[in-house]
Amino acid sequence: MPEFAALDPLLHSQLRLAVMSILISVESAEFVYIKEQTGATAGNLSVQLDKLSTAGYISVIKSFKGKKPVTTCSITKIGISAFETYVKALNSYIK
């Protein structure tokens, strides 16, 4: 019987996986952009971003554009590695 790698529970969630998929394709994305692309509510997205940030998968930087507060997210090296491992595990399940 082939051995299956366990799927990372932090990534195996629709919104968190969507966020990570966006961030792996770009250098950085603002909260507004991620919200638009995922269709999530601001509250839910904030909670999920916090979880990913606490795990060290993403970095969240708060700054200002003029007087407007801006939250910018980017994927970290740990996040890239976790995402790659997750995709590999997923492939092993599907094959």
Binding site: I22, T38, V87
Partner: peptide, 25 residues
Amino acid sequence: MEKPLSNQDSLILITQMINQTKQNY
């Protein structure tokens, strides 16, 4: 958005998000 995610759903979601984002410059 926290409904159970099948493996197939995961792959579709990843592909969709990456495609949606990469054309954005």
